[in-house]
Design a protein around this nucleic acid. Structure first.
Length: 826
DNA sequence: AGCACGCCGACT
DNA sequence: GTCGGCGTGCTC
């Protein structure tokens, strides 16, 4: 038998299957999706089996054999191997990257080499110390350790290996410490145990206590826990083991990050008429076993989560599994609690704050079938279930579903592809759907076919959406108020303090960091490697580059004109916090931003503090806008709505509308009425005006008009190709060449026509132009934007051009990065 | 990615 | 005359 293996080498030249003989001993175990160790170019590498056949594609004398099978159960299922093929074709990534993104990091094994002394060979030339060290270790010692102990003998080791005096043995070792716990197993024969207890001498009181306990609870129990509960020594239990009245074994322990918490079981709530209609549509699709993607458009507070829960329940009853994706940021304890409360231990939770080990344990729960619901961020879309019936993507418009590193996949698109493979239902849920999803769901359907649009326009509580007031900050300034708080927001904050209610303040800080600028000459501190402005960090008094990490001392005077009028600009959450403390002495503020939420449980700790009303104000960036639900929050303030509006990004208006709508939904969710104040310098902008009126449809109409005029999604699709090189001429040459080649290819296929032509298949190539960050990490960057429409295989075209381009020596050293479906173009 | 093979400068 | 620079090419 021959195994086709993708080896774990991140290089274009090795990005194809290699053939290996399968040793008979593992023939029955190896499968498509197995992880193996294979000899490759003089070392042993990890690889994935993507095919099994009887014949090889190269002559069999060249074939080597699979060295080892790394898991008893293949970590990937055959449908995922197929999915990996689709991933690398669509997103222009290597096969290794596509496979790697589907498994937990703990399973990215590395070679470990062990050194031994060859038998029946004269080894007199080897240093005595080396031979002794190896012998003392039972004949084999890790190469790394040997070299660390005897750095002076590195040459001898190399020579010993070359001349055959030393032997090397390689094995792939997972990056994983499997934790074990000593566990006490009571005798299965309880009668014998009871008899032994009777026969114990009275002096063995402690041993009798243990036996009594085990007779009452005849289940395996952790030894440490047993000893503590009964306050007996471990040696007492050991003594019983000697008498063969129980056994002690090491049991693999799973790290359950939620293990120390118990969840109140919840029961399905009665659905409203609206919820019921949506639920039954979803259930119909699950039952049909035919893939169908639906868009659940529900206002904040419309009870989407309960619909999710009951749909999942139905899916499980059909004997299928369900995946729920939520944005990382809203994967809060509150959210997890609702799912654990309904489905108990059948839920696996996957989020980025887990350690590699914890993530691996949750993943294994899925792979082994002990979990049937996976809830997690983006990568949970690769949960290794066998029969997926339902995939839910909550807050589907969130940009965190797009991975920004290769493979640059969009979880929404992967979800649809997986659902097609499994015949599953996809539910995209949002109060503010992305224009792409809304347009797709609003397409004309064949007569009689059910619509993919599932509307939930009313709130479960029956409460109206909160009042939103827009404050024009220009008139504040005109009236002499130079503070970052308008008089209105100031007054309302004060009222909340007096009444003991809580407020949420949002600082929309995207692209709005504290930068250093000279008021005399206009000099700004910029990174010498990346050409972007440096941000000021008060704690360390350093200015730092957000891209490469370059840091230097904050200048005390202008390096350009030597003026003293150098100032730190922009409003960070820290600054707002200081201002709050000044304006409202004694105010209790919880600040949430990247600085305060970096710890493992910092995010949830801060939120629970706020939930316990230990603070008056929750101040934060985007992360306070999502999914929070606190009954005493009656005021939401947005400090500057337009910071995101003015970004040079075609989705700026959409992002702003979404953010404002989301954050407004945080106020007055319970018995107290909520109020929202939006401060802005452009109150007339439709993104702000329509969010004030809670008018999604109105916003979409306006925004679609803009997108149509400018030919942006959903009226076309985009691909971004970024090229970089240390030398400017090299990157200019490469990008010019790339643009010419791709145009020629499109011309050849007859699709190089302007989008405005109205032709169903069209491709436009823009650029090349210098990237807006023209240099990063000492590399110059140029980019091409490709706009296209219809069934044009742009990924395939780009890959073909890159393949021929990279063969040419002139373009060696040029790095290409392809983003199909980029979320931001700046 | 690594590692070996291969053709041109400063050293015993 | 050799040791070693890293350019080029291959890995089942």
């Amino acid at each position: 038998m021959i195994a086709k293996v993708i080896v774990d080498v991140p290089s274009r030249q090795t990005d194809r299957p290699f053939d290996y003989k399968v040793p008979e001993a593992i023939e029955d175990w190896i499968e498509v999706g197995s992880r193996v160790g294979v000899p490759f170019g003089g070392r042993v590498l990890q690889g994935f089996v993507v095919g099994l056949s009887e014949t090889a594609t190269v002559d069999s004398s060249k074939l080597k054999a699979v060295a080892e099978l790394l898991d008893p159960v293949p970590p990937l299922l055959p449908d995922m191997v197929e999915l990996s093929e689709w991933l690398c074709a669509k997103y222009c990534c290597s096969r290794t990257q596509a496979l790697g993104v589907m498994i937990p990091a703990a399973l990215k094994g590395k070679e470990e080499r062990y050194i031994g002394i060859e038998e029946d060979v004269e080894t007199v030339l080897l240093p005595e110390a080396l031979k002794e060290e190896i012998r003392e270790n039972g004949g084999w010692i890790k190469l790394e350790r040997l070299l660390r102990s005897f750095p002076e003998h590195a040459g001898s080791v190399k020579e010993g290996l070359r001349s055959g005096m030393l032997a090397v043995r390689s094995s792939i070792k997972d990056r994983l410490a499997v934790r074990t716990v000593l566990t006490v197993f009571p005798l299965e024969d309880t009668v014998a145990m009871a008899a032994a207890k009777q026969a114990m001498p009275r002096s063995a009181a402690k041993q009798i206590t243990v036996l009594e306990h085990l007779l009452e609870h005849p289940y395996p129990v952790a030894m440490a826990q047993l000893a503590k509960e009964l306050s007996v020594a471990v040696s007492t239990i050991r003594a019983l083991e000697k008498k063969e009245l129980l056994s002690i074994r090491e049991v693999e322990k799973e790290r359950d990050p939620y293990g120390d918490r118990s969840y109140e079981r919840t029961v399905p709530l009665a659905l409203t008429k609206e919820q019921e209609a949506v639920y039954s549509r979803i259930a119909d699709v699950i039952r049909s076993e035919h893939h169908f993607t639906m868009l659940l458009h529900g206002v904040t507070g419309s009870g989407k989560t309960e619909v999710y829960l009951q749909s999942i329940q139905y899916c499980l009853e059909q004997g299928k599994q369900a995946i729920v994706l939520v944005p990382e940021i809203s994967l809060t304890p509150q959210m997890v609690e609702r799912f654990k409360g309904r489905f108990g231990t059948a839920v696996a939770v996957l989020h980025s704050r887990l350690s590699d080990g914890e993530r691996y344990d949750e993943w294994r729960k899925i792979r082994s079938g002990r979990a049937v619901v996976a809830i997690g961020a983006r990568s949970a879309i690769f949960a290794p279930f066998r029969h997926i019936g339902l995939i839910i993507i909550d807050e589907e418009h969130e940009s965190s579903y797009k991975q920004e590193e290769s493979p640059k996949y969009h979880a929404r698109d992967v979800a649809v592809r997986r659902a097609k493979q499994h015949g599953a239902a996809v539910v995209l849920g949002s109060a503010t759907p992305s224009l792409e999803s809304f347009a797709a769901a609003s397409r004309d359907m064949p007569p009689g076919a059910p619509s993919p649009l599932l509307p939930m326009p009313s709130r479960v509580s029956g409460r109206p959406l909160p009042e939103v007031e827009v404050v024009d900050m220009r008139s504040e300034l005109r009236d002499g108020n130079r503070s970052m708080f308008s008089r209105k927001l100031h007054g309302e904050l004060l009222r909340r303090l007096e009444r003991g209610e809580q407020s949420v303040l949002l600082l929309n800080r995207r692209g709005y960091s504290t930068f250093v600028m000279c008021r005399s000459c206009g000099y700004t501190a910029a990174c010498p490697h990346c050409d972007i402005s440096l941000t000021y960090h008060q704690k360390t008094r350093l200015v730092r580059c957000h891209y490469c990490g370059h840091a230097e001392a904050a200048p005390g005077q202008c390096p350009s004109c030597e003026s003293e009028h150098i100032r730190y600009f922009g409003t960070g959450t820290q600054k707002v916090e200081e201002e709050l403390a000044k304006l409202f002495p004694g105010i209790r503020v919880i600040r949430m931003d990247v600085d305060t939420t970096s710890g493992k449980h910092a995010h949830e700790r801060l939120l629970s503090q706020f939930g316990e009303r230990k603070a008056d104000v929750l101040l934060g960036t985007q992360m306070v806008a999502k999914g929070l639900d606190f009954p005493y929050v009656t005021l939401v303030g947005v400090i500057a709505a337009d910071t995101s509006l003015n970004l040079p990004d075609f989705r700026a208006a959409e992002r702003t509308f979404q953010l404002l709508t989301q954050v407004a939904g945080r106020a007055g969710r319970h018995h107290l009425e909520g109020e929202v104040i939006i401060q802005t310098y452009s109150p007339e902008h439709y993104a702000i005006a329509k969010s004030q009126q809670h008018d999604y449809a109105g916003f979409v109409r306006e925004e679609l008009r803009h997108r149509s005029v400018m030919a942006y999604p959903p009226y076309c699709r985009l691909a971004l190709v970024l090229m970089s090189h240390e030398q400017l001429p090299a990157v200019i040459a490469a990008s010019d060449r790339f643009a010419a080649e791709i145009r020629e290819l499109a011309q050849h296929e007859g699709v190089l026509v302007p989008l405005s032509s109205g032709r169903p298949r069209a491709v436009e190539v823009l650029g090349p132009v210098a990237s807006s960050i023209a240099r990063m990490k000492d590399r110059y960057r140029f980019q091409c934007v490709i706009k296209y429409r219809g069934s044009v295989d742009v990924s395939g075209m780009v890959q073909r051009v890159l393949q021929s381009l990279l063969k040419e020596t002139a373009h060696r050293g040029v790095q290409f990065s392809v983003d199909v479906d980029p979320q931001v173009i700046i």
